[in-house]
């Protein structure tokens, strides 16, 4: 009760507390994620109408759209955690940022692949340089660059600082890139590009889409917690090994 907001905030920075809390959260989180995805998939595959234009292929949407959404969600998590890490020096924040990147990258990749699989029957090509696909591809590059920077610097403290700056620079740049791409594309290719926004969605499609989006988000959170725990343990192992190197002389 006597804790100030800032103190409470830092109390959760304690990895031991985080480990205990996340340990209790993980099982229900996994269960909720898998259940929601299972129900969502059932609706998506068996209990929703085919599109009057696209036929059965529209069902790719139920994986594609949530993936694309989580691709952006992942980057937001990463950028937000990076900001916290830079401003408050919160010890868990850079763990959170680092752990979010590969998951976000995986969803980005999934969005690109499912988009490509969807595009083949729809447009007759695996890839089209339309504004949205191009910006998602650039998002993947930003993720990969972020991960490469982490991998290139041995010392985690230095790596965290540099990676956080990169993540924030990316966060500022994403809208700029996004709009430049839109502008670029309309300049060269007017309305001929297939509109991915599609027609306004029927409620029978909205339900499975919503369920899948929630399920994927829960899945992201579960994976994120698992990766954060793994990262904390990896740092512990590293610290123990460093300690062993210096204590073995006795």
């Amino acid at each position: 009760m006597s804790l100030t907001a800032a103190q409470r905030f830092h109390a959760y920075a304690n990895p031991a507390r985080f480990m205990a809390l996340s340990d209790r959260l993980l099982t229900p989180l996994w269960a909720a994620a898998l259940l929601t995805i299972a129900v969502g998939l059932w609706f998506a595959l068996f209990n929703s109408p085919p599109d009057y234009q696209q036929g059965e292929t529209v069902r790719i949407m139920y994986v594609h759209v949530p993936s694309a959404w989580l691709a952006m969600f992942g980057y937001s998590v990463m950028a937000f955690a990076s900001a916290i890490a830079l401003i408050f020096r919160h010890p868990l924040a850079d763990v959170a940022a680092k752990s979010a990147a590969p998951i976000g990258a995986a969803f980005t990749f999934l969005a690109l692949v499912t988009g490509s699989l969807w595009g083949k029957p729809m447009w007759g090509t695996w890839w089209e340089w339309d504004a949205r696909m191009t910006s998602v591809l650039i998002l993947l590059f930003l993720y990969l660059g972020y991960m490469a920077l982490w991998a290139a610097i041995e010392d985690p403290v230095r790596a965290a600082r540099a990676a956080a700056v990169l993540a924030l620079a990316g966060a500022i740049n994403i809208p700029v890139i996004r709009y430049s791409v839109v502008w670029w594309n309309t300049l060269h290719q007017p309305a001929s590009v297939f509109r991915m926004d599609g027609p306004t969605i029927a409620p029978s499609m909205l339900l499975p889409l919503g369920l899948m989006a929630i399920g994927f988000t829960l899945l992201f959170l579960a994976l994120h917690l698992v990766r954060m725990r793994a990262e904390i343990m990896r740092r512990r192992v590293r610290a123990l090994r460093l300690a062993r190197a210096s204590s073995s002389e006795a």
């Binding site: 590293r238 090994r241 062993r244 190197a245 210096s246 073995s248």
Partner: peptide, 15 residues
């Protein structure tokens, strides 16, 4: 021998 499984990065200059 006690350091056998440690990466060289973790060793001190003397080690």
């Amino acid at each position: 021998a006690p350091l056998a499984d440690l990466p060289a990065a973790y060793l001190s200059a003397g080690q």
